[in-house]
Simulated scan of single mutants.
Amino acid sequence: MINRTNAARAAAGLAASAALVLCSGTAQADAFVALPGGELTQTLSDGTVVTVRLVGESATISPSMGSTPVHRNAWVSGSAQVELSGPNANDGKIYPGYIVACQVTVNGGGVTGGVDAKSDWEGKKPEIGGKAGGNLSLGPGQAKSMYLLDQEEADDFGNESHATRNKFQGTHGSVTWADSTLGITGCAGYAQARAFVRVKVSTTTVNSVLTLWGQPFSIG
């Protein structure tokens, strides 16, 4: 004879166990990744020495609100610092950001190769004047740049415009960011990201652009 009370308790226990397994399968803890940053020094044709540093860089990989395999989410932090030296040093512009890729390997090149760094992301280098935004839609084999700054200002005609750079006068400039969102949708394969600091330097005789790359990191 079946004891209905015991059967009900067993059924309730199975339901609770199933719920526990389901929750444990979807709940994930944030993963903190400390990144080494980097430094790049280059001497321009007029003798101006440009030093670009990426310091205090880190990423926290977090479960996406989408809770599906095609969603990724990370919070990134760091500081881009530029130092100029020489009698012709004048001013500069700093464009910090990240390149994010779906099923594209980003290893290689290091952080000292500047704009000539070799990697599987060749041809996908950040362009000055790109768009800022925390969320990207990527398919397999795609890579896109995401700028961290979105500064609203008036253009020469008084119309609203948006800039992805921080301008500085003199010999020093910097941009610091904390817990900036890096979100991806549509990527069913592995995803990686890599910080960059794109710098445009203007002296009394030379205009030059150089790029410092950070270390690639996985975002799932």
Rank of each mutant, 00 (worst) to 15 (best):
C187H: 10
L22C: 13
A8N: 08
S45G: 12
H162E: 04
G141Q: 08
F32M: 09
W213L: 06
A195E: 09
V70E: 14
D46L: 08
E57C: 12
N107W: 07
S24N: 11
V209M: 09
L54K: 02
D116C: 03
G129H: 05
T176M: 04
D156T: 02
P63V: 12
W213V: 01
L40Q: 04
G129Q: 04
T43M: 06
G92W: 00
G134N: 11
R198S: 14
F168E: 02
Q28N: 13
A34T: 13
G25D: 10
S62N: 11
S24W: 13
Y95L: 08
A193P: 01
V52S: 02
V111F: 10
S17T: 15
I61T: 05
S62Y: 07
E83A: 08
V100Q: 00
E153A: 12
L182V: 11
A7I: 10
T43C: 05
C102W: 00
T171N: 04
S218V: 11
T204V: 04
N3G: 06
A132H: 09
P69S: 13
G86S: 03
A7L: 15
W121F: 13
S119D: 10
L210Q: 13
M1V: 10
A80E: 01
A11Y: 09
G110P: 01
S85N: 03
H172N: 07
K125I: 08
T164Q: 03
G56M: 12
P87S: 04
Q42S: 11
Y98K: 05
Y98Q: 07
A16P: 01
G170E: 03
E122Q: 10
V209G: 06
G109M: 07
V33E: 13
K93H: 04
A11Q: 14
C102S: 12
H172R: 06
A27E: 11
A18T: 14
G158K: 03
D116N: 10
G37Q: 08
A154Y: 03
T211K: 03
G47S: 10
T203M: 06
E39I: 13
V106M: 15
V55P: 01
Q81Y: 03
T205C: 03
L138W: 00
T176K: 07
I94P: 00
G123K: 07
A74C: 12
E127K: 07
P63E: 13
A143G: 12
V106A: 14
